[in-house]
């Protein structure tokens, strides 16, 4: 366990340089940013296990939530601390970057996945802050459709829903998303939910809701009310 830290601006810059270099040369050693001037102690009481194995986004988010809870902190104490989230991505960088089985190369994605953006339109893309944000907003059951995947991936449920303020802040809509697209038996999203062609897919759901929110106070509606006003194309998903 180490005390939680936050990257400094110099540390963030070094981290960005490392991300850029390791993308080209996977054997580049990770710089030590766990000391000044590259990072500073964040919150004395908060400790993080650097070598913990995190098998899914849900595991990662639950782990952070538990550490925050046992440190007597609240989500509002940490949610906007971008340089803390970037530090977490730094210490878990190896887990957050997939080694492609065919080439053995590390797959490093866009910078916003590791360096937490100050712009909320990119914030949710961060591979550590994003899952924690979703879990802290939605709770364990409703976050499962977003957090079922491995820590190094960024799935389309997050991209399509967490990026839209209106959707992610309405738990009743997320209830409906869960009901329509989550396969209870297989503990994974239903096949075709993210298809662009299948009737009633997730993108269609978003379009329909964007129309309905102009007329209805979505917040006041129960999940059954919402399902009732959805077009017929969504009925099939309920029976799958």
């Amino acid at each position: 366990m180490i005390k939680a830290r936050a990257l400094s601006v110099d540390g963030e810059k070094k981290f960005k340089e490392y991300i850029s270099t390791v993308r080209e040369n996977p054997s580049t050693p990770r710089p030590n940013l766990n000391t000044a001037p590259f990072s500073i102690e964040f919150i004395r009481e908060l400790h993080i296990e650097e070598s913990i194995a995190l098998n899914s986004k849900a595991e990662l988010a639950h782990y952070i939530q538990e550490q925050i809870r046992t440190s007597d902190l609240k989500r509002e104490d940490v949610i906007d601390k971008n340089l803390f989230w970037s530090w977490l991505a730094y210490i878990w960088f190896d887990q957050l970057t997939l080694f492609a089985p065919d080439t053995g190369n590390r797959i490093v994605k866009e910078e916003a996945k590791y360096v937490c953006s100050r712009d909320y339109r990119d914030y949710y893309r961060h591979l550590v802050a994003g899952p924690y944000l979703i879990l802290s907003l939605l709770g364990s059951r409703l976050s499962r459709i977003f957090l079922h995947s491995p820590v190094y991936t960024h799935n389309d449920f997050i991209e399509q829903i967490a990026s839209r303020q209106f959707l992610i802040t309405h738990l009743n809509l997320i209830e409906v998303v869960d009901l329509l697209y989550w396969d209870e038996n297989k503990s994974r999203p239903k096949q075709g939910a993210l298809s662009r062609n299948k009737p009633g897919n997730l993108r269609r759901f978003i379009k329909v809701i964007q129309q309905l929110e102009l007329t209805y106070d979505i917040y006041s509606l129960s999940k059954d009310d919402i399902i009732r006003i959805l077009p017929d194309e969504f009925r099939n998903w309920l029976n799958q």
Binding site: K74, R75, E76, I79, D80, Y216, D217, S220, D225
Partner: peptide, 23 residues
């Protein structure tokens, strides 16, 4: 107190029809 970014909070006032839930 349970909200983050309190300094930046904005407000929305809505009047909603009781039965139909229309805004």
């Amino acid at each position: 107190t349970d909200m983050a970014y309190r300094q930046n909070l904005k407000f929305r006032v809505l009047v909603v029809e009781t039965r139909s839930k229309k805004i």
